[in-house]
Design a binder for these strands. Structure first.
Lengths: 115, 115
DNA sequence: CAGCGTGTTGACTGATTACTGCAACACAGC
DNA sequence: GCTGTGTTGCAGTAATCAGTCAACACGCTG
C-alpha cells in the first residue's frame, strides 16, 4: 500500500527527477513513474533486483523497501530455511508474545555495552 | 536437496504409482517423475500451488514441503510482513540464541496453563 | 506562446515460468 | 513378450513478468 509513495518521497528528498533516478537504476523513466503510482501491468511491485538497485540509488535500507514490496528479504528467508521449526513457532505467536521475546533479546544483549 | 526424494518416499508409503498421484494433483505423470528427480526444465521446484496440491494428495504437512522446496510458507510470510522489525531481529540471531528463545516459548507457555 | 523539463498512461514486446504431450527407452515380474 | 512402472529429452504453450516506447498533459520561464 505504500511502496510507490515511499520511493517517490525518497527520490524527492534527494532532489532527483524520475529521469535521473531511472538512469541510475538502468530503466526508462516511465517505469519509475509506474512504480511510484502502482501502475505496473500485473502485480504491484517491481522485481527484487530492481528494488535492490533502487535502494542503492536512493541510499536507503534495502530490506525495508523489500518488506514494503511484500517480499521476504533474502537474509531472512535464508535464516527461515536454516531453522524452519524455529520460525514456524515464531510465526504462531501473537503480537504480545513477540514483543516479549524482543524484550528478551534487547535486555540480554544490550546492543553495545558502552563500558 | 531433498524435495523430490521426500515426495517419492511419501508417495511410495501410500502405495501410489506416479500415474495415480499425477491424476490426484491434476498433472501428467512425467511431471511427477521430473519433480522426484529434480529434472524440471529451469529451477528445481514446482510452483507453490502444485506443492500445496501434493501435500493434500499425500496427506502431509504443506509447510514442511514448502520449506523443502525453499519457499517461505504464506503463513510465515504474512507474519513477517506484519512484524518486520521483529523478524529482522530474529534473523540476526545465531543458532544458540534462537534455541534459547525457543526454550523461553516452550517454558513460559507450557501448551496450556490449567486454571 | 514556444519550448523545456517533468510526470502519466496504454499498448506493445521479449523473457521466463510452469507446465503439457509425445516419443523412446529401461527394468521388473508374470 | 507383454504390461505396468519409471526416466529423460525435446518441442510446444499459456500465463505472467519486466520493461520499452509513443503520445500526451502539466507547469514554468523566457
Amino acid at each position: 500500500m505504500k511502496f510507490g509513495e515511499t520511493i517517490r518521497e525518497l527520490r524527492q528528498e534527494r532532489n532527483l527527477s524520475q529521469r535521473e533516478l531511472a538512469v541510475m537504476v538502468d530503466v526508462t523513466f516511465t517505469y519509475i513513474s509506474k512504480i511510484e503510482n502502482h501502475k505496473l501491468d500485473f502485480g504491484e511491485h517491481p522485481s527484487e533486483n530492481m528494488i535492490c538497485k533502487l535502494a542503492t540509488a536512493l541510499d536507503t535500507d534495502e530490506e525495508t523497501l523489500l518488506i514494503l514490496a511484500e517480499k521476504v528479504p533474502p537474509r531472512i528467508k535464508q535464516r527461515v530455511m536454516e531453522r524452519p521449526e524455529v520460525f514456524r513457532k515464531f510465526a504462531k505467536l501473537d503480537d504480545k508474545s513477540l514483543d516479549q521475546l524482543v524484550a528478551q533479546i534487547d535486555g540480554k544483549r544490550p546492543s553495545k555495552k558502552p563500558r
